[in-house]
């Protein structure tokens, strides 16, 4: 099993993800510069966080239109898992691999702090190691993290149980006060209808060792690795 971590100009969470996959989990993973357009031999992809292309036009807009994204689409079409974290989530929505858009936070500042999340769906390649309704902690660090979608799309996401994580308070309740960016319905992460593409604003790689304050995020990568081992 080998996992690719895509690097664009301005990506800056690539080595954190590599550390978690290689050093913490002992998996085979490598960074792939976006100009390498061939992802043959890889069984999964992580699109990490950062500020690809300076967030020019819109966050993720330029990266989403680079040729390597065609290879990511092909890999996803084979059912292999694709995980987009923070700027990676923005890239996946801009590439139309996921529904909706990530827009400027309701309070238009960069917000960097821990959040409480509720796991809403465990039947995905990224959350099999969680319990449905489980309360977990992961940090956010973004200015364009407000999840927006038209009403019809939101209804479909709910109906098909595509919402995977929501921002909640310490008691696991969906509250405005627990919503760090104004995301509609407190949405922090969603999957596509085939469930093998996940985008989320919180950073699981920054919550993958207890010394960092939480290792809840590690189970996202463990789930992904299990899924690859079982299916590919």
């Amino acid at each position: 099993m080998k996992i690719a971590i895509i690097q664009f100009g301005g990506t800056n969470c690539d080595l954190d993800v590599l550390h978690v996959l290689k050093d913490v989990l002992g998996l085979d993973a490598e960074t792939v510069w976006y100009k390498q357009e061939d992802l043959t031999g890889f069984d999964g992809v992580v699109v990490p966080g950062g500020f690809s292309y300076g967030d020019y036009l819109r966050a993720g807009a330029i990266a989403a239109r680079t040729p390597i994204m065609d290879s990511v689409k092909k890999l996803a079409a084979e059912g292999k898992p694709v995980l987009g974290i923070c700027n990676g989530f923005q890239v996946l929505t801009e590439a139309r691999l996921l529904e909706g858009a990530l827009t400027t936070n309701e309070y238009p500042k960069f917000r960097c702090h821990w959040t409480n999340l509720r796991v809403e769906a465990v039947d995905t390649p990224f959350t099999s190691k969680f319990k449905k309704g489980e309360l977990i902690r992961m940090p956010i660090a973004h200015m364009e993290g407000k999840f927006y979608a038209e009403e019809k799309t939101l209804a479909e996401l709910d109906e098909k149980e595509q919402v995977v994580f929501r921002y909640v308070d310490g008691n696991g309740k969906v509250m405005d006060s627990a919503n760090p960016n104004g995301s509609l319905e407190n949405i922090a992460g969603i999957v596509n209808t085939s469930r093998n593409i996940l985008g989320l604003m919180p950073h699981p790689e920054r919550a993958s060792e207890s010394i960092l304050g939480s290792d809840d995020g590690l189970r996202v990568f463990e789930s992904m690795a299990d899924y690859i081992t079982e299916n590919f």
Binding site: L57, R58, A61, R65, E94, G100, A101, T103, Y148, A149, E150
Partner: peptide
């Protein structure tokens, strides 16, 4: 349609 705007928003 392809780049300059995001028709969703």
């Amino acid at each position: 349609q392809k780049l300059i705007a995001n028709p969703i928003v």
